[in-house]
Design a protein around this nucleic acid. Structure first.
Lengths: 197, 197
DNA sequence: ACCTGAACACCGTTCAAGT
DNA sequence: ACCTGAACACCGTTCAAGT
């Protein structure tokens, strides 16, 4: 029986930034941000924690930046030329998608919401302004609208997370609002905001 | 020369929950949330870290809850009966005050925004609904308005923090938006939202 | 009742060393 | 180039002990 050079080197995909961030996101979604440690992340990847630093030289800071980028990346699907007049519907679709992604990864929300990153934020608002520019909305009205809409979406997602008891806490079936309540509230508020633009 | 029984016991105010939370807030405002540790907090209070647990049995969790309560406490000044018709102005005042407090304590914002606390959130929205109830706004319109407004205020505050480079980072005088820009954006968006209610 | 000191089980990160 | 192992300087928290 021929001895393998290493148990691991054979049937394990090599480490990569993408695999690392994916594993980190899985830990955060499943166990919460507080349980994301370099050592646990190493375990999940079947690697010593220190191997991660070879791919993320800035360490945990860079890992958290990667999580934010993965969740908050703004793929504001630009409307096809034919739809240009329907910019309001395009904004509505974008808002619903963005909110869904934020709430789905509630554990990352504290990072998305407050990590200082002016360039990433500028990119998001720019893509919103582009939708409105194609729809013929004046520049400065579009700039205000972009910040207002993004603020509402991000803020409401935060309220939803804040207003939902942790699974396993008390009063889970008590006075707390249900998912359906939050859906309704988000839609109602979104209609208000879009109507005002 | 008479020996003092203890250097500290004499001229030091006794520890209290309030003093602890105040000192913690000073550390967070001055150095950031990441530098708030029980040991550093003990130093600031001229006490061993372990003494804090006598006043906050739930430890750091309770400390963070205290910070959130201190910053996000919603003193929605209820309008005097004479002002009841001016509920829109009352909401505007409330929104400006709340936003100012959030931005002033930017370091606590990640906690305010996402710490699960349904009762505290319900209290805030209830006080907003009360302002509108006195102004004669129908119940369910007021409920939607309260969530929309609160979502906008919290979300915009988060955008401001996210869009402001840390003091000492690069491009501080570069492409980043100024305080005046953010003030203008907040006011413009607030007018949009209030106009839609 | 209030605080201390030592200890425990963790962290993130460095660095020299292995392959 | 990529990963490991030991080590360092921290964490939050417990517990017995002091006053």
């Amino acid at each position: 029986m021929v001895r393998q050079p290493s148990i691991n080197a054979q049937h394990r995909p090599p480490l990569s930034t993408e695999r690392i961030v994916d594993a980190a996101l899985r830990i955060v979604d499943g166990q919460g941000l507080g349980r994301l440690t370099m050592r646990r992340l190493g375990d999940a990847l079947e690697v010593e924690a220190m191997a991660i630093y070879h791919h993320l030289p800035r360490g945990k800071e860079q890992l958290l930046d990667g999580l934010v980028a993965h969740v908050a990346a703004a793929p504001a699907a630009r409307p096809s030329p034919a739809d240009a007049a329907a910019w309001r519907d395009a904004l509505r679709r974008w808002a619903r998608d963005y909110r869904a992604r934020l709430v789905e990864h509630a554990g990352v929300l504290p990072l998305v919401v407050t990590r200082r990153n002016p360039p990433a934020l500028a990119e998001t608002t720019a893509s919103l302004r582009e939708i409105m520019r194609l729809g013929g909305v004046p520049e400065d009205a579009a700039a205000t609208a972009a910040h207002t809409l993004l603020g509402y979406v991000v803020g409401h997602a935060a309220l939803e997370v804040r207003g939902t008891p942790r699974p396993g806490d008390a009063d889970e079936a008590g006075a707390a609002a249900s998912t359906a309540d939050w859906d309704r509230r988000f839609t109602a508020g979104l209609d208000l905001v879009l109507g005002a633009l």
